[in-house]
């Protein structure tokens, strides 16, 4: 995909250096478990073409997905996840915990299995089921498109993600769960491939934040 975009905007290639000076290995939805985070080092990321209009347009689409219950429910403004298509506070109030995996006898995986449990209202699941950790909450709930775009690009708030990691995030296992959420849960408004396209387009055109 990146290659294609690069070709498309051939000649206007810009090199941007994103330096990741100190990488705390902090997990986002895509950060824990088998998902690799690159070593801290200076990376060279190609940006196809800075295009604020295209970028903002793409993010508007991305935002629709991020604010859908399948994504937002685990990016709550508080320390309790949300549930359901109406994004109500999770029944029985499980708390985020330092690592985003719940606390005490209410760890996420006490109920959430490596896969969706069959049946309406049965716990959804994924091998990597968790919330963002306490020191990188990556709140979606209540954020405007502008706020969310800036937050996603802010290394202090995104777990020091570099561009490559951000681009890869679209294919993270827990992110992709959003498109296989189990019985009775509405899918995000875009297909996964459309989301991935818009996500990468947004990033590759300069990751501009919309003005709200």
């Amino acid at each position: 995909m990146q290659e294609k975009i690069k070709e498309k905007h051939n000649g206007l290639r810009t090199l941007v250096v994103i330096s990741t000076l100190s990488v705390l290995v902090i997990s986002m939805a895509f950060g824990i478990g088998g998902n690799k985070i690159s070593n801290p080092e200076t990376q060279v990321i190609p940006i196809v073409k800075k295009d604020s209009i295209a970028s903002v347009k793409a993010f508007r689409q991305v935002y629709r997905v991020l604010m859908s219950p399948r994504c937002m429910n685990c990016h709550p403004s508080g320390d309790i996840p949300l549930q359901g298509d109406d994004s109500h506070i999770h029944e029985m109030f499980p708390k985020r915990g330092h690592e985003g995996k719940g606390i005490l006898s209410m760890k996420c995986t006490n109920c959430h299995q490596p896969e969706n449990t069959k049946g309406l209202h049965a716990p959804p699941g994924n091998a990597n089921w968790h919330l963002p950790p306490a020191d990188m909450k990556m709140v979606f709930e209540g954020k405007t498109a502008s706020q969310l775009a800036k937050q996603l690009m802010d290394p202090k708030q995104n777990g020091n993600k570099n561009m490559k990691q951000l681009l890869e995030h679209a294919d993270d296992g827990l992110v992709k769960w959003g498109w296989e959420p189990g019985e009775g849960r509405t899918l995000p408004p875009l297909t996964h491939s459309e989301f991935k396209k818009q996500w990468q387009l947004w990033l590759n055109t300069g990751a501009y934040a919309p003005k709200d």
Binding site: M92, F93, P94, I103, L104, S105, M106
Partner: peptide
């Protein structure tokens, strides 16, 4: 803590 642990 008890609330957090026992609400389930």
């Amino acid at each position: 803590d008890i609330d957090n642990a026992m609400a389930g």
